[in-house]
């Protein structure tokens, strides 16, 4: 337990945010606009000062982190039109150079530039000027710049905004590889529930300046009570029924019909439902028709 610890005192934007990330974990920070996702991530990056609370990233307070500490972080920024005249390979090599003095046994820094360019799928564009890249290619370059120093903790703010489905899948593969092979802890913010579900070991839902939910996608789904839809096929016909407990229901189904039953599907409350419920529950205008369990927010 050494990567990220954060408790953040009361302010207007963040009203007490607590979470911990373990080494190699992928964490997704979900939340509506204005919930404080970016503020949180910028505090962790050391780009913004907090008003109070205790924050620790890689054993140091981000507000006081030195260059050695900075070298262990990776930050994927949303590029816009900076460095338009630079060639992809040259820019990466330039940024890589800053990490040379920070190489450690077991974690050689920086990443070999040619290898990194292949890794993010830009090998055909290495000699291109950045201004000539497409939006998706630029974002891959942003990721490459973020990880060129082989970070131990990687921050990504809305990493796949504007990606096409293929680029998004490639990007997800890359993040998984980083977390599995490089043991990189990843914290990303996203609007995309599907992305959070696919990518993250753990999802934090931030609403109105607080973490209102913390857990894996299935844990979160299990937490809100909702009826599940079970569909199955029997005798060439498709049946669907809403049930309270799908496990019991399916057992009964098999007891009654045995092998006649096939193609069973259970629709759990999906992440979207969880998200909407959690975010609303926390809002001041929490409407009456939502009747979740008494808030049991494990921290």
């Amino acid at each position: 337990m050494r990567d990220l610890r954060m408790s953040y005192g009361p302010t207007e934007v963040l009203k007490g945010v607590d979470f911990t990330a373990r080494r190699g974990e992928v964490l997704a920070l979900l939340g509506p606009n204005g919930a404080g996702k970016t503020t949180t991530i910028e505090i962790l990056e050391g780009f913004r000062n907090r008003s109070s609370g205790r924050v620790e990233v890689l054993g140091a307070d981000p507000a006081k982190g030195d260059e050695r500490w900075r070298a262990r972080l990776g930050i994927v920024l949303q590029s816009w039109r900076d460095h338009g005249r630079w060639e992809v390979g040259r820019l990466l090599a330039h940024f890589a150079r800053f990490y040379v003095p920070f190489s450690e046994p077991g974690r050689p820094r920086p990443w070999d530039v040619d290898e990194l360019i292949r890794e993010v799928g830009l090998e055909e564009h290495a000699g291109k000027r950045i201004a000539a890249l497409s939006g998706g290619q630029r974002r891959r370059l942003d990721v490459a710049i973020g990880i060129v120093g082989r970070p131990e903790v990687l921050f990504l703010d809305e990493p796949t905004a504007g990606f096409d489905p293929e680029a998004r899948r490639d990007f997800h593969d890359l993040v998984r590889r980083l977390s599995d092979l490089e043991d990189t802890t990843v914290l990303l913010t996203t609007h995309d529930l599907d992305e959070a579900e696919k990518l993250a070991d753990r999802i934090l839902i931030l609403a109105d300046g607080r973490i209102v939910a913390d857990g894996s996608a299935s844990e979160l789904a299990a937490r809100i009570q909702s009826r599940q839809r079970v569909s199955w096929t029997r005798g060439g016909r498709r049946f669907t029924e809403a049930v309270d407990n799908s496990t019991t229901f399916i057992r009964d189904l098999f007891e009654r019909y045995g092998d006649e039953v096939s193609g069973i599907e259970v629709d759990r409350a999906d992440l979207e439902e969880v998200y909407i419920t959690m975010v609303k529950r926390d809002g001041q205008d929490a409407s009456a028709e939502i009747t979740p369990e008494p808030a049991e927010e494990n921290r």
């Binding site: 900076d82 800053f98 710049i145």
Partner: peptide, 20 residues
């Protein structure tokens, strides 16, 4: 210009990037 387009921010994310 470079404050606005993020060049400076990229430098800030690097160790000793501002010096560079």
């Amino acid at each position: 210009t470079e404050r606005e387009d993020g060049t400076l921010l990229r430098a800030k994310a690097l160790p000793k990037g501002m010096v560079g």
